[in-house]
Amino acid sequence: MISAPEGAIRQGLDTVATPSKAIDPIHQFIVEPLARIHLFGVDASFTNASLFMVVVLLAITFLMIIGTAQKSLVPGRLQSAAEMSYEFVANTVRSTAGQEGMKFFPLVFSLFMFVLFSNLIGIVPYTFTVTSQIVVTFALAALVILTVILYGTYKHGTHFLHLFVPSGVPMILMPFIVLIEVISFVSRPISLSVRLFANMLAGHITLKVFGAFVAMLLGGTGAAAILSPLPLAAIVALTGFEILVAFLQAYVFAILTCVYLNDALHPGH
C-alpha cells in the first residue's frame, strides 16, 4: 500500500515499514474539509484551517475584548496582557512609520495578533497552524502591499512613483536603479509571505521528525530504546525555540508591514 522509502521521511524513517500519519511530518499541513460548502460553484468548505482561524479569532477576542471588559484603572492579568499588546504594537508602528502611521494601527495590530496567535496555537500538538499555509501568508502580505499601493496612490498620486526613483542618482544609472527598486518592491509580498510560511513549515516539520524519532527508537530494540529520550529532549528545546520563532515572525511581519506602510506615507526617500 505504501512505498516507504520515499519522501521527506527518508532520514532514518524508512526503517519503519508502514509510516502512518502519526509519523508523517507533512500530514499536519493537510487542509481537510470539515463541512463541505459550495457557493456559486466555488469551494468554500469549512476546513480544519478555517476552524483554527476561528480559534485564533476567539482567542484574540477573548484577550482584547473580554480581557478589557472591566476597564480597570489597575489592570488585572488579562487586561495587562491586552494593554501590553496594544502598547507593543503601537510603539512599533510609531517608531517605524511615525505618528502618521497610527492610522494603520488597527491593521498592523490585527495582522500582528492574527499571525502571533496562529503561530502560538499551532505549536500545541494536534492543532493546525494557519500560517503554515502559503496561501494564507501570501494573502496577508498581499493585503499589506495592496494597502501600500492604494493608500500611496490615493494620497500622493503620481508622486507615489517617486518610491522607485531615488533622488541624487546619476541619470546614467537611473534605469538600473529604477529596475532594482521595482524588483525589490515586487519581491516584498513574496519575501514577506514566504518568510513566515517557511519558518512555520520548517519548524513544524522538524518537531514532527524528532517526534517520529522518539516513536521509532522506542519501537526499536536494545540501545535504540534507551536513546529515545534524546530526541524527546530535543523536542522540548525545539518547542521553546518555536515559541521564540512564533513571536519573532509575528513581530517581523508587523514591523515590515510598518516599513512598507511608511513608504506609502512618505514616498521618495
Binding site: 460548502i37 466555488v42 484551517a49 484574540i60 478589557t68 496594544y86
Partner: peptide
C-alpha cells in the same frame, strides 16, 4: 479557495472587532 474565503471572513471580522471595539477601549483605558 476555502482558505482564502474563510481568511477574508475571519480576518475581516478580527479587523472590525479590533478597530471598532478592542483598540478604542484599550486606548480609552490607557
Amino acid at each position: 479557495a476555502p482558505q482564502l474565503i474563510w481568511l477574508a471572513l475571519i480576518f475581516g471580522a478580527l479587523y472590525l472587532l479590533m478597530s471598532r471595539l478592542a483598540l478604542p477601549r484599550v486606548e480609552g483605558i490607557l
